[in-house]
Nucleic acid binder design. Structure first.
Lengths: 161, 161
DNA sequence: ATACATGCAAACATTTTGCTTTGGC
DNA sequence: GCCAAAGCAAAATGTTTGCATGTAT
C-alpha cells in the first residue's frame, strides 16, 4: 500500500493474496479456476495500469489465450465488480483491476495518446457521497482524467508550424 | 442515449454569437462556411450535451448530412480546439462544443448507460494548474465522471434476483 | 456427467479513408 | 479556377457472438 507508483509490480505476496481474494469471489459466482482466469488475474493484480484487450492479449503470460477468451473473462470480472472499464479517448476501452484503497488518476496526451499515472490528493472522493444522496444512484465511483499536450508533442508541433 | 437536456439553456442570441465566434476561428484556419458546418455548429451551440456521431446524424437539422461528413467536420472542430471528445463507457465516442466558462460533469448508469448532467462545484479546476506545472503538459483540462447504478436499474436487478 | 471455458471464425458496430462530384471563395 | 466540402462506398478497427471441443468440478 505504500507503493507510490501502483503500475509498478507489487510484492509477490500481495499479488497472490489479491488473486486469491478475487478467485474466491468468482467461484461463489460459479466461475471455475481455469488457466486463463488465473493468468489474467495474476497479470492484472501485478500491473494495475489500464490495459485494452489487445494490450492484454500481447502480454507474455497471456500469450496463446484467445482475445475472445480474454474478452469474456474481463466481462465476467467486470460483472463481479472486480474490474472497471475506463475511457481514455482511445478507440478501445481500457480495463483495470479494482484494488481496494487504490485510486488512480491519469494524464493523457491528446496528440500521441500517452497515458501517465499522476499522483494527487484527489478531492473528489467526498463528493461521491453527495452524488449518491442527490441522485439515488448506488455503487457510485468516480473517474478523473486530465488531458493535454505532452512536452514532446508540443515541441514537435512547434517545429512543424 | 438520453435526450439532451441542458441546464444552461441559451438564448438564441447567445447561440448565434457562439456560432459566429466559432466560424471566425475556423475561417482563419481555411475552413469554408458550408451548409454542414453551419448546421452542425448551430446544433452543438444550442445543445451542449455529449453526442455521438450517430446522435448527431439523427438530429433533424442535420438530416441528409452524411455521417462521414459529420465525422470530418467534428474532427476539424476538435483540431481547432472548439470541440472535445469524451468517453462515457459507451462503445462510441461522445463530442461536445467547448463553451468558455462552462464545465460539465456527468453521472452515468453502468447498467443502462443513461447519462445525467450533474451540477456540482467542481473542486478539480485548481488542480489543472498543478498538473501542468508538474508534468510540463500544456492545454490541460480535466474530465470528471461519476458512474453508478441508477434507481431504476437497481429496482430491476432486485426484482430479478 | 455436467456445465463452464476455450479457440476459431464470423457477425457487428463504429470509425476512417478514397474517390468523385459539388460548391464556396 | 482553385481548393475545400459532401456524398457514397469500401476498408480498417475493435467488440461481440455462435458453435464445436476441451476441461474443471
Amino acid at each position: 500500500m505504500s507503493e507510490p507508483h501502483c503500475h509498478h509490480a507489487q510484492s509477490p505476496r500481495e499479488v497472490a493474496s489479491l488473486v486469491e481474494t478475487c478467485i474466491d469471489q468468482l467461484r461463489a459466482r460459479g466461475l471455475r479456476r481455469s488457466r486463463g482466469l488465473d493468468a489474467l488475474l495474476q497479470h492484472m493484480a501485478a500491473h494495475h495500469h489500464p490495459a485494452t484487450l489487445a494490450d492484454l492479449a500481447r502480454v507474455d503470460s497471456l500469450a496463446g489465450l484467445d482475445q475472445a477468451t480474454i474478452y469474456r473473462l474481463v466481462m465476467k470480472l467486470e460483472s463481479a465488480g472486480l474490474v472497471r472499464r475506463r475511457g481514455l479517448h482511445d478507440r478501445a476501452t481500457y480495463f483495470q483491476l479494482v484494488v481496494p484503497g487504490h485510486h488512480h488518476d491519469y494524464l493523457v496526451c491528446t496528440v500521441c495518446g500517452r497515458i501517465e499515472d499522476i499522483e494527487l490528493s484527489c478531492p473528489v472522493e467526498p463528493l461521491e457521497r453527495e452524488v449518491m444522496a442527490r441522485s439515488g444512484y448506488t455503487h457510485v465511483y468516480h473517474e478523473l482524467g486530465f488531458f493535454g499536450i505532452c512536452p514532446e508533442c508540443a515541441r514537435h508541433a512547434a517545429s512543424v508550424s
